[in-house]
């Protein structure tokens, strides 16, 4: 029974997931190769303060004068293009059930099957978790391919890259769980995507504003990106367990609330 549901979800998303994974892997490889080279030139320059501030804002941390060899490696993990690719994948994936299915009228077919709503939700979520692993694995592979051409002292150790990847997966769960929750409460995929996008942009903006604007500091904890810190990990920190747990735990709570909502709601297609 579960295999049938997994197969259905997989058939629906495999093509777009592969495209996202290839794009993500390629961009990561390019950044991993190009950015350390740029770092060498950058160190030779006297970096203006505002440039440091912008880099700090992008990384979500104050970097002061300590622009090290891994600062630019960290940028490749927080670059808006990388984040946008993963979030777009999540928005399209996690808004499918039930909002997307109701929107296009296929929910009737799915729900004519002898499967409980919770099982349906769980099976779809298993494919979401698996595609997340797949995407992030491509990001790691891209990173490794890119850094293969970089001198040893300029590339981070593999265990630190994996720790960043784990933190990134925590972010993936946090965002996806939230989108599942929105989807469970709506019958329109467009509304779900709009609401989620608005909140994600606000979260990104908040994280960016913190180093520049004092009032933003008070709301810092509300931004998902506050708990995603590749810079700290690559510069010697271990796996950010607490941050990853907050992201994954928050995502799980939203996801579970979504499951409850989906279990008890009316499904109307007209």
């Amino acid at each position: 029974m579960i295999r049938g549901l997994l197969l259905k979800s997989f058939r629906e998303v495999w093509f777009s997931t592969c495209i996202f994974a290839v794009c993500l892997g390629s961009i990561k490889a390019l950044f991993a190769y190009v950015l350390p080279t740029f770092a060498k030139d950058f160190e030779m320059l006297w970096a203006p303060t505002f440039v440091k501030s912008i880099i700090g804002a992008m990384l979500g941390t104050e970097i002061g004068d300590s622009i090290g060899p891994f600062t630019f490696a960290a940028i490749s993990w927080v670059h808006p293009l990388v984040i946008a690719l993963v979030w777009t994948h999540e928005l399209t994936f996690c808004s499918r059930l039930p909002a997307g299915e109701i929107d296009r009228g296929t929910i009737d077919v799915v729900m004519s099957l002898p499967v409980s709503r919770v099982r349906l939700y769980v099976c779809d979520s298993l494919v979401w978790l698996a595609t997340g692993l797949f995407l992030i694995a491509f990001a790691v592979i891209g990173d490794l391919v890119g850094t293969a051409f970089v001198a040893d002292g300029e590339k981070p150790a593999i265990h630190r890259v994996l720790a960043v990847a784990a933190n990134f997966y925590g972010l993936y769960i946090g965002v996806g769980g939230f989108v599942y929750f929105l989807s469970s409460s709506s019958s329109s995929r467009g509304s779900v995507i709009r609401a989620a996008l608005l909140i994600l942009i606000a979260s990104f903006l908040l994280n960016f504003l913190v180093p520049f604007w004092k009032p933003a500091k008070s709301f810092e904890l509300l931004s998902a990106l506050t708990y995603y810190r590749p810079m700290a990990v690559l510069n010697g920190g271990g796996l950010p367990l607490w941050d990853t747990a907050i992201l994954a735990g928050g995502g799980f709570l939203f996801w579970a609330a979504g499951a409850l909502r989906f279990r008890n709601r009316d499904i109307c297609t007209v």
Binding site: R11, G105, D108, V109, S112, T269
Partner: peptide, 29 residues
């Protein structure tokens, strides 16, 4: 729903689905 067959008035299905594939997936479920 184990013993119920249902067809809605306006039957909508996934664009990638064929009859053969649908029978395989629905049969597994």
């Amino acid at each position: 729903k184990r013993d119920v067959g249902y067809m809605p008035g306006d039957f909508r299905v996934y664009p990638w689905m064929t009859c053969r594939l649908a029978l395989e997936i629905f049969g597994r479920v």
